[in-house]
């Protein structure tokens, strides 16, 4: 128990500190790197409470895809972050207000679950106790077994969206130079290189 508590406090402290640094860091690339640190330590917190699937998703999706995408955007776009931060104090009250509303809403949700525990069991597909079933298994049961029909239907829907996007936007343009690998490979030295004997003191 002591070890668990220790790990929790270390991870929680690093998460909060990294979160603060995301906002406070001067260099936007550093901000993104702190964000990645925050993601990793939150994944550790998830493992601590037994939500191993969420931890995996956080590392794979958020660190692997989203944060890297952020990094690309930050490095490729020429945004003046100092200028962006100028109105910080001006927007602070409204930002604080929205933050407060979010906090109250979170408390209401958690309070509701705490006050009436039967609420969580009223869902259409109740989740089994953690001891009986790992949550990866439970999610798989819901998504790929119980709702397999809807899952497949959604797949067909996305396929139609893909076909539609291609049909409506893809144009085969004329006069575009395309890579022809066979021609590249079949090219011989004589066609590509011309040797000239250049006399000293004269141009080509």
């Amino acid at each position: 128990m002591v070890l668990q508590g220790l790990v929790f406090y270390v991870f929680a402290f690093i998460t909060v500190a990294a979160g603060c640094m995301v906002v406070a860091a001067r260099n936007p690339v550093h901000s993104v790197l702190f964000l990645i640190l925050a993601f990793f330590t939150s994944a550790g917190l998830f493992v601590l409470i037994g939500a191993e699937f969420l931890a995996m998703i956080l590392v794979i999706v958020y660190v692997g895809a989203v944060a890297v995408l952020f990094l690309f955007v930050v490095m490729m776009l020429d945004i003046n972050f100092v200028e962006l931060r100028e109105g910080f104090l001006q927007y602070l009250p409204i930002g604080a207000l929205i933050g407060l509303i979010l906090l109250i809403e979170l408390l209401l949700v958690l309070g509701g679950m705490r006050l009436t525990p039967e609420l969580t069991r009223q869902t259409a597909a109740p989740i089994a106790a953690l001891a009986a079933e790992s949550n990866t298994h439970a999610l798989g049961q819901v998504l790929y077994t119980r709702y397999i029909y809807l899952f497949q239907a959604a797949g067909m829907l996305l396929l139609v969206a893909m076909i539609g996007a291609i049909v409506l936007t893809l144009r085969s343009r004329e006069g575009v130079r395309r890579q022809a690998i066979a021609r590249q490979v079949g090219r011989r030295r004589e066609e590509a290189v011309e040797l000239k004997q250049v006399q000293p003191g004269q141009g080509v």
């Binding site: 029909y149 809807l150 239907a153 959604a154 067909m156 829907l157 139609v160 969206a161 076909i163 539609g164 049909v167 409506l168």
Partner: peptide, 19 residues
Amino acid sequence: LALYLGIELQSLALYVVAA
């Protein structure tokens, strides 16, 4: 849910065919 997904699959394909 099945009703909604069926309708969307039909409609999405028809939007594309209309254009």
